[in-house]
């Protein structure tokens, strides 16, 4: 359903895609591929899969990784290089926010945040909501796009109910 993704991105600035656990990875890469077709400068914040794993997947799916700057909060640290910034932990929300803000100032067109569900595993609901609100405000002020991934199974949580207030659309996918 590529057109559903494209129209959601076209019509909205801040979007949450709710994806079922069953085919989460497959659907995530469909979204990534669509965003990659539309934008040339994308920041991918991964709390799920390490940077090296994603590079291999990108190559296999013929997605141009050169368009992406990764913020890898999974690998537990590493040496930063032009395509990747390592953050020591998925709990390091302040560091993730600083790195996203720095990239906002460097012509990044859109952000993909993978995922809100993983965020909740490492941080409490209130801290997670504050974090999401903070980064959404910065991205909005800069007139850029942001796509959040989330598990459909988490749609009833307090965090998702509150996040509803500051995103433009929640899209079941």
């Amino acid at each position: 359903m590529p057109s559903k993704i494209l129209s959601a991105i076209r019509e909205n600035q801040i979007i949450v895609f709710e994806i079922s656990k069953k085919n989460y990875i497959e659907k995530t890469y469909e979204i990534i591929a669509e965003v990659s077709n539309k934008h040339d400068n994308i920041c991918y914040v991964t709390l799920n899969r390490p940077y090296q794993t994603m590079l291999k997947d990108f190559a296999a799916k013929k997605i141009d990784s050169g368009k992406f700057t990764f913020i890898d909060a999974v690998s537990g640290g590493g040496k930063n290089s032009p395509g990747v910034i390592f953050v020591q932990s998925p709990k390091s929300l302040t560091d993730i926010s600083i790195d996203m803000s720095n990239l906002l100032g460097k012509k990044t067109e859109s952000f993909i945040f993978d995922s809100l569900s993983t965020l909740l595993i490492y941080s409490d609901s209130m801290t997670s909501i504050k974090f999401v609100h903070s980064i959404v405000s910065k991205i909005r002020a800069a007139s850029k796009k942001c796509i959040f991934m989330s598990l459909k199974e988490d749609s009833g949580t307090d965090m998702m109910k509150d996040i509803n207030m500051f995103v433009d659309k929640i899209v079941p996918y």
Binding site: L93, T94, D95, S97, I98, S123, T127, K130, F131, S134
Partner: peptide
């Protein structure tokens, strides 16, 4: 928020709140 950056020193981010 503040960071100690290797090869640079201290960097302070006046716009960045500390989460938690």
């Amino acid at each position: 928020a503040m960071r100690v950056v290797s090869g640079v020193g201290i960097e302070v981010y006046p716009e960045q709140e500390v989460f938690g």
